[in-house]
Design a protein around this nucleic acid. Structure first.
Length: 758
DNA sequence: ACGGTTTCGACT
DNA sequence: TAGTCGAAA
C-alpha cells in the first residue's frame, strides 16, 4: 500500500497563506550526545527553548485510544467570504489581497481555480496577474487605515456555531476547528450499526480513506461504501466510519447555513486529523484508520508536521538527517531526549508512532484580541506623533472588538499589551529588540489609547537606552518603528449576577454595534481624568485616586513622560499601583497599612493624602455612588432582561440564567425605566440566589462556573470600576475566595496524558 | 517589502 | 505569579 499523500500535500500544507518567516540560518544548534553544556542537562524543547530537566514530569506514552477526532479546515476561507459577498466571483480564479500599493499587494488567500493556474501564496498581486491574467483580486476590507479582518472573524464564528453542535469543539484559528466526536460516534454506532446501513449519502461516499485500495476499474464510492459498513472492521474503524458520517453531515450543514465549503480529517487524534484535513482539498474529507498511520508517516516530510515547520524541523533535518516522520523511528527515545530535551524528545518519539494525546479543548472563543499594523521599509514611523496616530487607530479597533466581546460573550479583558518592532541607526547595539510592555487594561477608547502610548514610550526608552532618550524631541533621525500592535488578553467571563457591572461596561447588550459611544461616555464619567502624565501610570491607580485629579492631563503630558520623567517611572509606579490594589481586596495585612495611614515609601506626598482618603473603602464607595447617574439603572430585572435577550452567546461554557429569574417581565427596555435599585443592603441575598442557580451542575463541562472566573479577575480591574460596582465585586469576591482551583496539568501532562489532565 | 493574528512554552 | 520573549501556525 503506497500512499501518495506526500505528493498531494507536498505543495503546501496549510490552507491559508499565513506565510512562515522561518529563519533557516538561525536553526537551533543542538549539542550532540555527550556534549551537553556545563550543567550537563540542557536541551531544547520542541519550540526551541531551553528546558530544565529536573522540573520535567516524566512523559507518559499514550497508546492509540478510541477517540474520534476531526479537524475541519475552511477552504481558502477569505476568498470564500469575499465570494459570498460577491457571488459573481464564484468559480473564478480569485485571490484576496491587502495593500495594493507595493507590487500589487500581498496575497492572503487564493482560490483553488487560481492555484490551478499557478498562483501561489507568497506572490504579490503583480506576480499573480502575471501567472494568471484573468485572476480577480479582491481587496481585504480596510478600516482606520489598516486591514479589517472582522468580516472573516464573524464568518468564522458562523462556522463554529454550526460545528459546535455535535461534540466538544475547539476553535483553533479563524478558519479551523477541532472536534471531539467520540461520544457522538459511539452513540451512533450503538443506535445504528453501520453494517445494517444501506443508503449512505452520496457525499460520504466521496470520503478518502487512507490505505483503502481502489483497484483499477472499481468504483471508489463502492469501495468506500464497503469500507464503511464492513462488518469485520475493528471497533476503532467503525467509530471512525461513524465519525466520517457525522463530519460529512456537519460539513453539509456548514455549507447550507453559511455557504462555505470546508475540508476535514477524521482520525484518532488531533495530529492525524489535522494532517488528514489538508490531504484532500477543497471540500473533501479524509479518514485515517489506525492501520494506515505507519505508512502515512513513513513518507511524510518532517516539515509537514505541526510544530516541525520551523527551526526544530530544520534542526532535525540537519542534525539527525531526519527527512520524514518515519525517519524518526530509528532513534531511541533517550537519544531524542539527549538532543532535544525530555519533553521534546518524548514528543518526537511519540509522533513518529502517530501518538498524540492532545485534548480537544472546549473553547469557542479566542483568548485574546489584537490589532496591529506593519510599516515596512520607507513607511517606518519616525515621530512620536505618527506612532501616536497609529496607536490611536489600533486602539480604536481594539476597543471596538473588546466591546463586541463584552456584548456578545460577557467577557472583559484585563491586560493591555503593546508590541512594536523598531530599528535604530548608528548605535552599536542597534539590534536590540523593542520590548513589549503591558499594563492593566482600562476600558474606554481614550484610556486604552493613552495607556498604549505610555507603554510605547516606556518601550522606546528601553529600546534607545538612557543616553539616547534625551535630545530627540518629536523628530528623530535614528529610530523607526516598523510594526505596532496592541492586544488585550486575560479575558474572563463576568459573573452573571453582577448585573451592574454589565451595565457599567456598556449598558446596551441587546444592541451590539452602536454602543461604543455610550461605553466611553459612561466610563469617562466614572473616571474623568487621565493620570497618565503625572507619573501616575494610568490604569494602575485605583479609581478613587484618579478622581481627585481635577486636571485633564491628556496625551500631551503622557508624551512628556519620555523626556521629563524618571525612565523607570512607569514601571516602578506599576509596582506601586499593584501594591495598593492588592491591598484593597486583601482581607487584612497590607490593608491595615493603608487604614492606619502608614507612610508609603514610594508614593509622592500627594498620593499619600489620597491613600488616607481611601481608608474606608465601603464609605468611599457609598459616597461616590451618590453622584453617579449609573445608579438608577442598576437593576436585576433590567439586567436579566438584557441578558436573557442576548443569549446567543457562542460560548457554551458560560453560565446560563435559569428561567426562575430570566423570565422576569420583558417590558422595560432601556435607561429611562427606573428599576428596582440593586439592594446593596442585602448583597448576600443576591449572591446566594446566584450561587444556587449557577451551580456547577449547570455547566456542560462542570468546571468553568462563575466563581472560578471571578477568582481570575485582576483586582486592579475591579479598582477601575465605579465604587458601587467595586462594592459589588468585593461582595462577590469574599465568599468565593478559595484556595487555588486545581491547576491545569503541566504541559507534558497536557500533551501526553489526556486521561490524567481532566 | 511574507501581513495580521493567535496561541503556547519557557525564562525570569 | 506576571511580564516578556520567541516559535509556530
Amino acid at each position: 500500500m503506497t500512499l501518495n499523500v506526500v505528493e498531494k500535500s507536498s505543495g503546501r500544507g496549510g490552507e491559508e497563506l499565513w506565510s512562515r518567516w522561518l529563519v533557516e540560518e538561525d536553526a537551533v544548534m543542538i549539542p550532540p550526545k555527550g556534549v551537553l553544556d556545563s550543567q550537563g542537562k540542557k536541551g531544547k524543547n520542541r519550540f526551541g527553548g531551553k528546558i530544565r530537566e529536573e522540573e520535567m514530569p516524566v512523559a507518559r506514552r499514550e497508546t492509540c485510544d478510541g477517540r474520534v477526532i476531526a479537524h475541519v479546515d475552511m477552504d481558502c476561507f477569505y476568498v470564500q467570504v469575499e465570494q459570498r459577498k460577491q457571488p459573481n466571483l464564484r468559480g473564478l480564479p480569485s485571490a484576496v489581497i491587502q495593500y495594493n500599493s507595493y507590487k500589487g499587494g500581498a496575497l492572503i488567500a487564493v482560490s483553488y481555480e487560481a492555484r490551478r493556474c499557478g498562483v501561489k501564496r507568497s506572490m504579490r498581486g503583480d506576480e499573480a496577474k502575471e501567472a494568471c491574467p484573468q485572476i480577480q483580486l479582491v481587496q481585504v476590507p480596510v478600516a482606520r487605515g489598516k486591514a479589517d479582518l472582522n468580516s472573516y472573524r464573524n464568518a468564522g464564528s458562523e462556522v463554529v456555531s454550526v460545528l459546535s453542535q455535535k461534540g466538544r469543539c475547539e476553535r483553533a484559528s479563524i478558519d479551523e476547528v477541532y472536534l471531539d466526536l467520540t461520544h457522538a460516534a459511539e452513540t451512533m454506532l450503538m443506535e445504528t450499526p453501520l453494517d445494517s446501513m444501506q443508503d449512505f449519502e452520496d457525499e460520504v461516499l466521496k470520503s478518502h480513506v487512507l490505505g483503502l485500495e481502489i483497484k483499477d476499474g472499481s468504483d471508489a464510492k463502492d469501495e468506500v461504501r464497503k469500507w464503511l459498513c464492513r462488518s469485520d472492521a475493528s471497533y476503532q474503524d467503525k467509530l471512525l466510519a461513524c465519525g466520517a458520517l457525522i463530519v460529512c453531515d456537519l460539513r453539509m450543514k456548514v455549507l447550507k447555513e453559511t455557504e462555505f465549503t470546508c475540508s476535514a480529517g477524521i482520525a484518532h487524534n488531533k495530529m492525524l486529523a489535522k494532517l488528514a484535513s489538508a490531504m484532500n482539498k477543497p471540500a473533501q474529507q479524509t479518514v485515517v484508520p489506525q492501520s494506515s498511520v505507519e505508512g502515512l508517516l513513513a513518507s511524510l516530510p518532517i516539515k509537514k508536521m505541526k510544530h516541525l515547520g520551523g527551526k526544530l524541523g530544520s534542526s532535525l533535518q540537519s542534525d539527525l538527517g531526519v527527512n520524514t516522520v518515519g525517519d524518526l523511528l530509528q532513534f531511541s527515545e533517550e537519544k531524542l531526549q539527549q538532543w532535544y530535551g525530555i519533553n521534546t524528545g518524548t514528543w518526537l518519539w511519540n509522533i513518529a508512532r502517530g501518538i498524540s494525546g492532545e485534548e480537544v479543548e472546549g473553547r469557542l472563543l479566542p483568548k485574546s484580541h489584537g490589532s496591529g499594523k506593519t510599516f515596512p521599509g520607507p513607511q517606518a514611523l519616525k515621530t512620536v506623533d505618527s506612532v501616536q496616530h497609529w496607536l490611536n487607530q489600533l486602539c480604536e479597533e481594539l476597543n471596538e472588538r473588546l466591546h463586541s466581546d463584552l456584548d456578545q460573550n460577557k467577557r472583559i479583558a484585563q491586560t493591555l499589551t503593546l508590541h512594536a518592532r523598531a530599528y535604530k541607526t548608528g548605535d552599536s547595539d542597534s539590534h536590540r529588540k523593542f520590548p513589549s510592555k503591558s499594563c492593566p487594561l482600562r476600558y474606554g477608547t481614550r484610556k486604552i489609547q493613552e495607556d498604549a502610548l505610555i507603554l510605547f514610550q516606556a518601550g522606546l526608552r528601553d529600546f534607545l537606552g538612557f543616553y539616547n532618550c534625551k535630545a530627540h524631541g518629536n523628530e528623530n533621525n535614528n529610530w523607526g518603528v516598523t510594526s505596532l500592535s496592541v492586544s488585550a488578553s486575560k479575558l474572563v467571563s463576568i459573573p452573571s449576577g453582577t448585573h451592574s457591572i454589565v451595565k457599567y461596561f456598556g449598558g446596551s447588550f441587546p444592541s451590539s454595534s452602536t454602543s461604543n459611544q455610550s461605553l466611553d461616555v459612561v466610563i469617562d464619567e466614572a473616571a474623568p481624568s487621565s493620570p497618565s502624565g503625572s507619573g501616575n501610570c494610568s490604569g494602575l491607580v485605583p479609581n478613587e485616586f484618579e478622581l481627585e485629579y481635577p486636571e485633564d492631563t491628556g496625551m500631551k503630558d503622557s508624551k512628556a513622560c519620555l523626556d521629563q520623567q524618571d525612565p523607570l517611572c512607569h514601571l516602578s509606579c506599576k509596582a506601586d499601583g499593584l501594591t495598593e490594589e492588592s491591598s484593597l481586596v486583601s482581607p487584612s495585612g497590607s490593608e491595615d497599612r493603608i487604614l492606619h495611614n502608614e507612610p508609603h515609601r514610594d508614593l509622592p506626598a500627594t498620593d499619600l493624602r489620597r491613600v488616607s482618603n481611601i481608608s474606608s473603602l465601603k464609605a468611599v464607595g457609598k459616597k461616590k455612588t451618590a453622584g453617579k447617574k449609573l445608579q438608577g439603572n442598576c437593576s436585576i430585572v433590567h439586567f436579566f432582561n438584557n441578558y436573557h435577550n442576548s443569549q446567543s452567546s457562542l460560548e457554551q461554557k458560560n453560565v446560563k440564567i435559569s428561567s426562575s429569574l430570566g423570565s422576569h417581565s420583558a417590558d422595560n427596555s432601556h435607561s429611562t425605566c427606573i428599576q428596582v435599585e440593586m439592594p446593596a443592603e442585602h448583597p448576600h441575598e443576591e449572591f446566594d440566589t446566584n450561587k444556587s442557580r449557577c451551580s456547577v451542575g449547570n455547566m456542560p463541562q462542570g468546571r468553568q462556573d462563575w466563581s472560578y472566573n471571578i477568582n481570575e479577575i485582576d483586582p486592579s480591574i475591579i479598582n477601575e470600576l465605579p465604587p458601587e460596582i467595586q462594592q459589588e465585586f468585593q461582595i462577590w469576591l469574599r465568599p468565593h475566595k478559595r484556595p487555588n482551583v486545581a491547576k491545569r496539568g503541566s504541559s507534558i501532562t497536557h500533551y501526553f496524558s489526556p486521561d490524567k489532565s481532566r
